[in-house]
Computed example of a mutant assay.
Amino acid sequence: MRRTAPLLVLCLTAAGLTACSSADTRPPPAPAGITAQAGSATSVHVMWQAAAPADGVTNYQVFQAGRLVRELPADRTMVDVTDLAPQTAYVFTVRARDAAGNTSGPSASAAATTPAAKAEDHQAPTAPARTTGRADGPRAATLSWAAASDDTGVTAYDVYQGGIRIHTAGPGESATTLTGLQPDTVYTFTVRARDGADNSSPDGPAVEVTTPPSAGQGPGTAPTGFTATASPGAVTLTWTAPDTGRPTAEYELHVNAKPVTVIQFGAGAVPPSGAAGVEYRLTVTEPAGTPWTLKLRARLPDGNWGAFSAERSIVLAP
């Protein structure tokens, strides 16, 4: 835990009464794992590792040569810095800021040099012809791809997950390690090639990677304690949300091995006061005596679906 240093105490005295409040004055740690990769002749992709939840970080500041160029919320740990000059070396650092306004020291520096600009280049690279992946434990995966070609040369490879770019690798790289994943989760990755004019190829072949369940390295992603109870015209579901570090607001319910609905907070899913449990009442129109098997999974903070809960079997009530 970070908040163990002495706190500044502010006291106000009025009418013989003294009221004191503690102010957080300890800055979060500097971001770690910063990298910079030129994506085109005029842009550089900067990435860093997310802060631990206990650090209380609310946003990040990206600096180029000591000048603030981007400010991002805490759930963003990468950014494309644009409007740069071709064939120019750039150095970037990142600072973290918490809710009290405390700002960390600068991260380590990351340098990148933009390539030369190519005039009137509108031809995109070919898509990487092959993509493979494997899990490296519950929270990491290694991805590899075949080289792409371009008339002016590939300058970067972009890794996408769920249609969102999550990583950028250099033109000479054909593999990378992705970290910060969730245990017991299916991920689908694709890779695109990019050239110096920012033309992107189509997606290469998609590859699925399933991370194994965690073994003492953090909680799993499956809802626990799942129950299903039939009553006339309804089925009541209860479960405990997975511990993903953030509130879980969306679940996908499967009945008889098929997805039937998405359950969202504010649309019937109500967590009991002061508990991690969730209850949902599902209206039923099928005939009494119909057998159902049910299971559900949660939408994780990174947008993926987590692991399924245990499966429950019921018979619809008359």
Rank of each mutant, 00 (worst) to 15 (best):
Q61K: 13
S40N: 04
A85T: 15
R97H: 02
A99R: 13
T35W: 00
R70N: 15
L72C: 04
A96Q: 04
T58V: 15
T25C: 06
E71F: 02
Y60F: 14
S43T: 14
T25F: 03
A51M: 05
P125G: 07
T35L: 08
A38R: 05
V79M: 09
T25W: 04
A85N: 12
L8E: 11
Q49E: 03
T114Y: 00
H122R: 09
F63R: 14
A116Q: 03
S104Q: 13
Y60S: 09
A52P: 00
F63E: 15
L17H: 09
R26T: 13
E71Y: 00
A50N: 05
P86F: 13
S104C: 13
A15M: 06
E120A: 13
P31W: 01
N59V: 07
T82C: 06
F63M: 15
K118D: 12
I34P: 02
L84A: 11
T103R: 05
G101C: 03
A112C: 08
P27F: 00
A38V: 07
W48G: 15
L12H: 07
S22Y: 07
A99C: 11
G105F: 01
A110F: 08
T126Q: 01
T77M: 01
A74I: 03
T88A: 14
A30N: 02
V79P: 01
A51C: 06
D80S: 12
D98F: 05
A38F: 06
A124R: 04
R70M: 12
P6A: 06
A111L: 01
D98I: 10
Q61F: 15
A54P: 10
A100S: 14
T82E: 14
D98L: 04
N59C: 10
S22N: 03
A74L: 10
S21E: 01
I34R: 01
P125L: 04
T77V: 15
A54C: 05
V9S: 11
A89I: 06
L72A: 07
V62Y: 09
L10C: 14
S107T: 06
A38W: 06
A52F: 06
L7W: 12
V69H: 04
A111G: 09
T18L: 07
G105P: 01
V69A: 09
A108C: 01
A74G: 11
R76M: 08
T113D: 07
V9H: 02
A15W: 06
P53S: 05
S22L: 11
K118T: 14
